[in-house]
Amino acid sequence: MSGPPARPLGAEARAEIARLVGLYEHRQSALLPALFVAQREHGYLSPEALAGVAEALDLPVSEVASVASFYRLFYLKPVGRHVIQVCTNLACMLNGCAAVVRRFGERLGVASGETTADGRFTLRTVECLAACEEAPAVLVDEDRWARVTPGDIDRLLERYP
């Protein structure tokens, strides 16, 4: 699967990062929000995007890449138009997330970590979405879905063209 063409950070993203820098005492503090800006623009954090963030914040590329690799919400490889993250931690597991993961897999024809052939969805399993009280929890892009059952899934997918 080929991702979007690698390109340096756009002017808009650079301007937004410059604005973010102004919000903090130390430039480094803007790193996480800046990474989200770059990811929104590129869809994922390509080496060029990471280099762009590093340049914008005057940080070593290695430091930026290291931080990006630490967090699951940053994608270092191309992902689908929508990213589905199913929690498989304890509370969700006890409340039936295995069936939810299985149903997503059957419906999309991909395993966890894979992207559908049409580039529409990437399916991932993650540890704890901080929504144990409404397990099983699913995050699609930035929307959180609660008490998801296998029966909900067709309807849920329709909302993300």
Binding site: P47, L50, P60, V61, S62, V64, A65, S66, S69, F70
Partner: peptide, 25 residues
């Protein structure tokens, strides 16, 4: 790399059980 040389050449990547020392990519 951070303290002595200032070139930040090697870093830690990933976390927990999958932590590793490496360069970007």
């Amino acid at each position: 790399g951070e303290i002595i040389a200032g070139d930040d050449a090697l870093k830690g990547f990933e976390r927990g059980f999958t932590s590793e020392i490496n360069t970007p990519f």
